[in-house]
Design a protein around this nucleic acid. Structure first.
Length: 820
RNA sequence: GCCCGGGUGGCGGAACCGGUAGACGCUACGGACUUAAAAUCCGUUCUCCGUAAGGAGGUGAGGGUUCAAAUCCCUCCCCGGGCACCA
């Protein structure tokens, strides 16, 4: 009897049963232990790519595993639906962004369903719908009233030909992607959210988040960048305002030999007015894009302004330069330079012949020459007047105290983290709910007038935002005084939508409030899975929003994501799959050809989840082959006859061995999936067990009812344990094995410790750390006995004889090392 | 430039807390079955020496710690992610 494995029909049947049983729809049940399993929701770009399939499969495996652990599991899905690609599609194909987006969502939803993910589709969230974004508009107005948002000028990339703001992505080698014009920095007024108000809390809590990868926490710590330093003033004769600088190295203050200010700094602007060379330099400085990477890697240039500041300790004149490596808006727009003890200052000083003055000496008394190499270590102060001989800490305190007493400086905690600019000069986003009135200024839109709906039937040209040309959108009355007023035409950064969607899944249909009580049941997310590329921005913004919502009384928890798994990219030929490189593999074609289970299995088997996954067509074939072998093994077992009762005491040695392997596999796979998220080794262990079953059956024509019972136990264990990864085939095999329950409702198997016991174990014997033999010893043998057996091994004896044994190391259950 | 990862056979990877390097799979090669092909099954597959037993080398490069290092420390090289308007 042969039953052919036909993935298409197997998978369709399984899906129909899950759907008919509403298997993955969950309500709130306080009596049950909940598990909220979340994946970073996709941008509806058109169709699924392999990166999507990978992350959704990882998450689905965890969700299904947790369900088998008895948890009440919520796994929702939705769409991060605002963003630039919809605008680009509109320009290229003339389709309105809304229409393009909704069509993509419909298509991609179908693809996800075909892959068999255990989603509660009744909770689907789509961020471009007014029912969704009205609540972030509402929260913004609440934040406005609390002073958590404000408006100020900020720098954008300006395309002088297209007369439009460009995203960093749209700047290629300093030029606009469509116009090819040199991009300029330009300042425009924009809205900011005060994430810095939460900097300390966001930083401190990282120490109490054991469920996050260390690397992500380190990146966030560095990004927030808390530093303790001193803010102090350098008087500029003839100027009413002093130059204010911040430094974490006040101990090097006597080594200051010049100052540098940003091109936009008032001092530079004033100098430019009377000097064409300086004016030209400043103009050139503006012709660069606004990214930090550009800014840090450009050639460091500067010009003296002909202005001198006064050193706050020595009173000596210090020349002031304008430099392209100082940015207005990061700190004060001015820095003090200590070439002897700062790498960038050193290089700049060498290039421009500025003095390099040593003021720090190595604590160990070693000699250094700052003319040859910069010395950035902390040490002992020299050439520093009354402060000579002090070490870093003492010098810091003494100098900070000195300026605090004079009132010209103070200790200051600084953060690298900057407030979050949320204004985008784009159409396809959530409108910022503000009205500008000549009398009242910027007025938040009152709650009863929300949402401010984005018009979806627009003519989209790509030059500027259509909202700016739509009087019907922007013409309005001031909510405060009733006079004619103008609506804000900028929209929110799309990170705003993704900073709170995780909470909305708890109550996607709440129509009167942003969140309701159901959120207290589901939050926080127990397992969050997504790409490392979101390690900083998305995850930090979400942590910030969670706190804003907490302080608004909407949620109780401070941290939104208890455990975080960051998965690697899908590569082909060593490069990220992308349309531009032409190395994409369409998941749909593979699902059509091999079935969803094969694709899911390959994804989980080919690499550990955190690592990049190298695509391999042959590997997919291998996964498909394994599923066929698995299917065949179960059906051959069924054809061989009914199993007897499994009676562990009556097993012979072969049967005992197979049973041991079954329970070893249960032990290993439970740990691999449950604790380690090491899905690739879990699959490998399942394959090994199936191989052991095949060898067991091949070794005897008829293994008898008892043998079949041991095989049955092994096969059922594989079906159960692979079901999170390849749910459709396991669903079908479970039924074939005569079970009338739904596999998704089965508990995870547990291992029988007594089946694992072994009388004899194998030990490795090393001589001087080199492998020289293997010996078999009783599992409970004493060290003396073990050593005696080890020394009796002929090959070991060859290396030990004639030499004195200096030391022996016995690692129980593992090895013996004899040092001679 | 700065921050965070990674580098192990022909390939993807395994080795979990410093204790047998190469599990599992792919490819390739050899064999069985077949008129033939596909599929399937069996075997071999880190390199070098050796008929074998066994030996030597080997985890990006160089140094160090240790009885023992892919694993810990230092220096360096290469690849990837992020750097605040891609999502």
């Amino acid at each position: 009897m042969t039953v052919v494995y036909d993935p298409a029909s197997v998978e369709e049947a399984a899906r129909e049963q899950w759907e008919a049983g509403h298997c993955f729809e969950v309500g709130e049940d306080p009596a049950k232990d909940k598990f909220y399993c979340l994946t970073m929701f996709p941008y509806p770009s058109g169709k699924l790519h392999m990166g999507h399939v990978r992350v959704f499969t990882i998450s689905d495996v965890i969700a299904r595993y947790q369900r088998m652990q008895g948890k009440h599991v919520l796994q929702p899905m939705g769409w991060d639906a605002f963003g630039m690609p919809a605008e680009n599609a509109a320009i290229q194909r003339g389709v309105p962004p809304a229409r393009w987006t909704y069509d993509n969502i419909d298509y991609m939803r179908g693809q996800l369903q075909r892959l068999g993910y255990a989603y509660d589709w009744t909770r689907e969230v789509t961020t471009c719908r007014p029912e969704y974004y009205r609540w972030e508009q509402w929260l913004f107005t609440r934040m406005f009233r609390k002073g958590l948002v404000y408006r100020r000028n900020a720098i954008v990339n300006w395309d002088p030909v297209d007369q439009t703001v460009l995203a960093n992505e749209q700047v290629i080698d300093g030029r606009g992607w469509r116009s090819d014009a040199l991009v300029e920095r330009r300042e425009i007024p924009q809205w900011f959210m005060k994430i810095t108000a939460y900097a300390d809390e966001l930083l401190g809590e990282l120490d109490r988040m054991p469920g996050w990868p260390e690397s992500v926490k380190t990146m966030q710590r560095n990004w927030i960048g808390r530093s303790e330093g001193v803010e102090l003033s350098f008087e500029v004769p003839g100027e009413s305002e002093p130059l204010v600088v911040y430094t974490t190295r006040p101990d090097t203050l006597f080594g200051v030999t010049y100052m540098a200010v940003a091109a936009e700094h008032p001092l530079a602007q004033r100098a430019a007015a009377g000097d064409a060379t300086i004016a030209a330099f400043i103009e050139a400085c503006r012709k660069t894009d606004a990214t930090e990477a550009t800014f840090e890697t450009i050639e460091k240039k500067g010009l003296p302004l002909g202005i001198e500041a006064r050193h706050p300790l020595t009173g000596e004149p210090v020349p002031v330069w304008v430099a392209n490596f100082v940015l207005m808006g990061y700190g004060t727009g001015a820095v003090m330079a200590v070439p002897a003890h700062d790498a960038r200052d050193w290089e700049f000083a060498r290039k421009h012949g500025l003095p390099i003055r040593q003021v720090i000496a190595p604590a160990d008394g070693g000699a250094i020459d700052v003319a040859e190499a910069v010395y950035t270590e902390r040490g002992i102060l020299v050439n520093s007047g009354a402060f000579d001989g002090l070490a870093y800490e003492a010098a810091f305190d003494a100098l900070a105290g000195h300026f605090e007493a004079l009132g010209t400086g103070r200790r200051k905690v600084n953060y690298r983290l900057r407030d979050w600019g949320v204004s985008r000069q784009r159409y396809w986003g959530a409108p910022i709910p503000i009205v500008y009135c000549d009398e009242c200024g910027a007025v938040p839109v009152p709650e009863e007038q929300l949402p401010v709906v984005l018009p979806e039937d627009v003519e989209f040209t790509g030059v500027g935002s259509p909202l700016r040309d739509m009087p019907s959108f922007y013409e309005t009355d001031c909510p405060s005084c009733g006079r004619d007023a103008r609506r804000e035409t900028d929209t929110f950064d799309t990170f705003v939508e993704s900073s709170w969607y995780f909470a909305r899944y708890a109550c996607p249909d709440a129509s009167e409030t942003m969140l309701d009580d159901r959120v207290h049941y589901w939050m926080p997310v127990d397992q969050y899975t997504g790409g490392v590329e979101h390690a900083i921005l998305h995850l930090l913004y979400s942590r910030f929003f969670q706190r804003v919502m907490r302080d608004e009384g909407l949620v109780r928890e401070s941290e939104p994501f208890r455990n975080l798994l960051t998965q690697g990219m899908v590569l082909k030929d060593g490069a990220k799959m992308s349309k531009a490189k032409g190395n994409t593999v369409d998941p749909q074609a593979l699902v059509d050809r091999f079935g969803a289970d094969t694709v899911r299995l390959f994804m989980m088997f080919a690499a550990p989840p955190e690592q990049a996954l190298e695509w391999s067509d042959e590997g997919v074939q291998g996964s498909s082959r394994f599923l066929r072998r698995f299917w065949t093994a179960v059906h051959e077992h069924l054809a061989a006859g009914a199993p007897g009762e499994l009676c562990p005491e009556s097993l012979d040695e072969r049967q005992k061995n197979l049973r041991r392997k079954t329970h070893q596999a249960i032990q290993k796979i439970s740990d691999d999936i449950g604790r380690r998220h090491s899905f690739n080794t879990a699959v490998a262990a399942a394959m090994e067990l199936l191989n052991a079953v095949s060898r067991f059956d091949a070794a005897a024509d008829d293994s008898g009812p008892l043998g079949r019972a041991v095989v049955r136990e092994a096969l059922e264990a594989i079906v159960l344990m692979l079901s999170p990864i390849v749910p459709h085939i396991c669903h079908a095999l479970w039924q074939s094995l005569g079970r009338d329950t739904l596999l998704v409702d089965e508990p995870w198997p547990s291992y029988d410790a007594s089946a694992l016991e072994k009388d004899m174990i194998e030990l490795v014997v090393q001589v001087n750390g080199k492998l020289r033999g293997r010996v078999s010893v009783a599992a409970d043998a004493a060290n003396d006995a073990v050593l005696e057996i080890a020394l009796a091994d002929p090959n070991v004896r060859r290396f030990v004889e004639d030499k004195a044994i200096r030391k022996t190391i016995i690692v129980p259950g593992r090895l013996v090392n004899i040092v001679v």
